[in-house]
């Protein structure tokens, strides 16, 4: 018989290393022609950080995305931006890039104010133009940067950001381990075949508070990918170790989800703006996966009226749990 069930998994996740300093640095060089080079140690491993950092730099400098090139992850050229881990790069390296871009921008704004005889506090840079009170002020950014460079002022910026944390008390763990947290709730719908023990995940709704989405498509991609890894964690994946030896050291014996194993995923972006984040952003990389197995496990328990306490929820375990429940009912 096939039984359907629904389960909720909620989670929180502290952004950045736990109760440890984990700074990031960035350099920005705002060039003569109004384009810019950003240097960040942040390693893009597929999550899309290079694109996100380019967006933050472009936004801050008031130029287009095509005007920014980001040089990353080269210890001979870029400052230390710490690991691409702990879902920290958008928040921490994003802030470092924002601060570096602000430093470069300030110099352009100061010079523009001087050239136009305006209050620098009211000047904005946008679309390659200098703006004053929501109107173009009559100078392009290129003209201002040329003036700076002509006077020997290089429009460079350096930024560092280290999240505000404290150490934790070793006996009680009390303290501030993270400057901010991401949150999420996922709801899974499953169908369990009570004969075979096979669980099919039909749908997952995944709502993630990311602070603000710098790149919504990237955020969705992280959520969808996280759900897929979560389906594997809940149902399929286990490195089998016997006598210290891995018995399934290959992709034919260690199975991860294929396109046919994936349910329809409904990613939802919730934006509870983080004031200390770059443009309100926090992070999403790990949260995407964290509650998925929990939601699936709760959905399986809902479907069967029997709860399993060991991951993964393999067909063998499910059939055994159904049998055990049936025999204990007979007693």
């Amino acid at each position: 018989m096939k039984k359907r069930g629904y389960g909720i998994g909620s989670m929180w996740y502290g952004i950045g290393s736990t109760a440890a300093t984990n700074p990031s640095g960035a350099f920005v060089d705002f060039l003569d022609d109004g384009t810019a080079i950003v240097m960040s140690g942040c390693a893009d491993i597929g999550q899309g950080s290079t694109t996100v950092l380019a967006q933050i730099a472009a936004e801050t400098l008031g130029v287009g995305l095509e005007d920014v090139v980001v040089i990353t992850a080269d210890t001979g050229m870029t400052p230390d931006s710490g690991p691409s881990s702990a879902s920290r790069q958008t928040y921490i390296s994003g802030n470092a890039v924002r601060l570096a871009a602000e430093k470069a921008r300030e110099q352009v704004i100061a010079k523009a104010a001087e050239m136009l005889d305006l209050d620098p506090g009211e000047i904005r840079l946008r679309d390659g133009q200098v703006w004053y009170e929501e109107e173009p002020a009559g100078k392009t950014m290129i003209e201002v940067i040329a003036q700076c460079r002509g006077e020997g002022i290089l429009t460079l910026g350096h930024g560092t950001f280290n999240p505000a944390t404290t150490k934790l008390d070793p006996a009680t763990g009390q303290g501030v381990p993270y400057a901010t947290y991401a949150f999420a709730t996922q709801i899974a719908e499953v169908e369990v075949d009570t004969e075979t023990g096979i669980v099919e995940v039909k749908k997952i709704v995944a709502a993630h508070d990311v602070g603000a989405a710098v790149n919504p498509q990237n955020v969705e991609g992280q959520i969808e990918g996280g759900c897929s890894m979560g389906v594997g964690y809940a149902l399929l994946e286990e490195v089998v170790v016997d006598g210290g030896e891995i018995k399934n050291p290959g992709l034919s014996s260690y199975l991860i989800p294929t396109a046919l194993d994936m349910p329809e995923v409904f990613p939802m972006i919730v934006e509870a703006q983080e004031p200390s984040g770059p443009y309100g952003a926090k992070g999403v990389g790990e949260p995407a996966l964290v509650p998925t197995a929990a939601a699936i496990a709760n959905a399986v328990a809902d479907a069967l009226g029997i709860r399993l306490y060991d991951l993964p929820l393999t067909p063998e375990r499910i059939v055994a749990a159904i049998k055990a429940a049936a025999s204990s009912q007979h007693e």
Partner: peptide
């Protein structure tokens, strides 16, 4: 489509956008 790409593993995307 899912069947057509089911011999190709992706660990990042969850396949939806593919």
């Amino acid at each position: 489509i899912a069947r057509g790409i089911s011999g190709n593993l992706c660990r990042c995307t969850g396949y939806a956008k593919i």
